[in-house]
Design a protein around this nucleic acid. Sequence first.
DNA 1: CTTGACCTTTCCCCAAGGGCAGGGCTGCAC
DNA 2: GTGCAGCCCTGCCCTTGGGGAAAGGTCAAG
Lengths: 243, 243
Amino acid sequence: MITIGQLARYVGVSTKTIRVYHDKGLLPEPERDASGYRRYGANDAIELIKIRTLAEAGIPLARIRDLRSATGEDFQQALREIDDELTARIRGLRATQGRLRQLAAGHPAPLPTQISAHLEHLVRWGFTPRWMDLQRDLWILVFATHPDQAIILFQDQTEALADPALRQLFLDYDHAHDLDANDPRIDDLAHRIAEATRDRYGADELPELDATSEIPALIQGTVNAASPAWQRLDMLIRAQLDA
Amino acid sequence: MITIGQLARYVGVSTKTIRVYHDKGLLPEPERDASGYRRYGANDAIELIKIRTLAEAGIPLARIRDLRSATGEDFQQALREIDDELTARIRGLRATQGRLRQLAAGHPAPLPTQISAHLEHLVRWGFTPRWMDLQRDLWILVFATHPDQAIILFQDQTEALADPALRQLFLDYDHAHDLDANDPRIDDLAHRIAEATRDRYGADELPELDATSEIPALIQGTVNAASPAWQRLDMLIRAQLDA
DNA sequence: CTTGACCTTTCCCCAAGGGCAGGGCTGCAC
DNA sequence: GTGCAGCCCTGCCCTTGGGGAAAGGTCAAG
């Protein structure tokens, strides 16, 4: 009969692991020899290998203990569940691996797919990186604070950008950043934006400002702080819409 | 700015997880508002998503912390290592899944491949299940106690079984189990076995009994206990070899 | 003004072992 | 027969990545 160390080497685990399995009732304690050493037979090796097979599948030891006293039918059923779960875990790991490679490729973070797709559209339409960052932050915060309404707002925004005329207004807003605050083109742009807004939403319901309350205001504040031209533009638009 | 709960829901983790990341220095503590609540911005969300991507790949949090202060080159290198490790883990899980299915299919335990292949050969050659169990236990114990010599002995045994004449002797040994202890065929078999042994190993070096000392003796004891015929057979063989 | 849903900190708990201390056994070499 | 290395024994604390509860402060809505 073999000692705990020999059994451990044969199966490829540590002696501590075997003792833990005894403590938790997974593997019965074997007989002791005259000096109190545990002595194992071939059967114990077989049982231990079975236990390791289950443990390596990630099954909690407590569940393995219960499984060992289950009937054949329950046991088969449990194995099927474990098999499915393993398949899912493998799929999950592959997905993680994909995200990791995106991260390595320089994509800064795997945002929710809707947002990152939106940002890629902006790139193609010629918006500046500055605008993209703003949009990214805005949508992250809106989705975080108002998950339900965010989807509606987001779809509305997507629609608006699909219209070339409206898209041009957004592009103009983006590029107005670098104008002098008193440039007359700003007054003109404010006028056109206010008009388009009224056309699209009617006179008095502006969904963005309504629904998410303080968040766009906060973003707008940051936005304005970045450029006197944007600040004046925002002021003019509000004045025209309130009138 | 959003609260810890909103950030947690957005990224899909618990608030506790975020606090743990603060404690461990993974994610910097954000500013607090007037009532002491943590307030997060869009940047924190992005950082947290990055951290989760790494954490879901199974990277220890301490390593993630270090990675965040690593240079681009080191970071890329680390990501490559992690990618390889993930690939290895996926392969490992698939292997585990295979072993699990073997277990479900009724194969009692995935023994080391050499042993299970040996046992399958025995089935094909017509040995009894009783003999197979004996062989299985014997080889498990020998491989556990004397891993180095076990391989040599095992190859020797494989060779012997490849010889039809020798194989027939083993088969006869197997079937002698059910004979009467005084059956004259036992004397005849003992004679033939002793002769074959001398032919194969020369007069005085019997590798099995030499090298692994007490183990085969122990097995032989169990074996003999199972059948008076085997007991007498063993006695006769020893007598002839010692002579 | 209360209620429920948040937030704060601190503390203990879990799995699955790893590692150490402090002691006993055994086998081999000298 | 003595020393020493390498096993074995038990008992205890340590780790990772959080979970959960306690005890209290805050906020928004009815």
